[in-house]
């Protein structure tokens, strides 16, 4: 069951669209559920489908199309690093190597303690602050150096 905290947020998103276009809120609904639960299970997607009133398959199509939805567990903190051209030119590889070494994971793996998952990401529209990473989709850290990465990770308990 979707919690009242979740449905309240989905209801707010629904106010943005005509009453007969509830499907338009599916992107937000999936985002809200994922933020609350960490990732999108089959069951979560079914619940979203039921709440919005759209076919489950259509929800899954959306969830699997967009890169920021996670259809498998990603640990407590998902760290996405952009490695696209502008970031690459400013040594995002060094940040990636540092993170891999420090967390003991390769891309798309979850660390042994279940805390961290590392993802390679495409351009985040913030290339002026390269190199950069996003934690759990919503908090961006720019102008990274290995030392700055360490300081950020130390804060994550």
């Amino acid at each position: 069951m979707l919690s009242p905290q979740i449905t309240e947020k989905i209801d707010y998103e629904l106010t943005k669209y005509p009453a007969d276009q509830r499907q338009a809120a599916v992107m937000s609904a999936l985002r809200i559920v994922q933020t609350e639960r960490g990732w999108l299970s089959q069951e979560s997607m079914s619940e979203v489908a039921a709440y919005i009133g759209m076919p489950e398959i259509a929800v899954m199509e959306v969830a699997s199309f967009y890169n920021m939805y996670d259809l498998a567990p990603v640990g407590k903190y998902k760290i996405s690093v952009c490695t696209n051209i502008s970031c690459m030119l400013r040594n995002s590889d060094e940040i990636v190597d540092h993170l891999k070494h420090k967390l003991g994971v390769e891309f798309n793996q979850v660390s042994a303690d279940g805390k961290f998952c590392l993802k390679e990401a495409e351009c985040m529209g913030a290339c002026g602050g390269a190199p950069l990473m996003i934690i759990n989709n919503h908090s961006m850290h720019e102008f990274l150096t290995p030392a700055k990465v360490d300081a950020i990770l130390d804060e994550l308990k």
Binding site: A25, M27, M54, E61, F65, Y66
Partner: peptide
């Protein structure tokens, strides 16, 4: 305000419209 969730193609205006409608872009 509405948001994308990680798909470059949604910058293309008709893909963006599909996305606003709650579909893949």
């Amino acid at each position: 305000a509405v948001h994308g969730y990680g798909a470059y193609i949604c910058g293309e205006e008709t893909a963006l419209i599909e996305s606003i409608e709650g579909k893949k872009g």
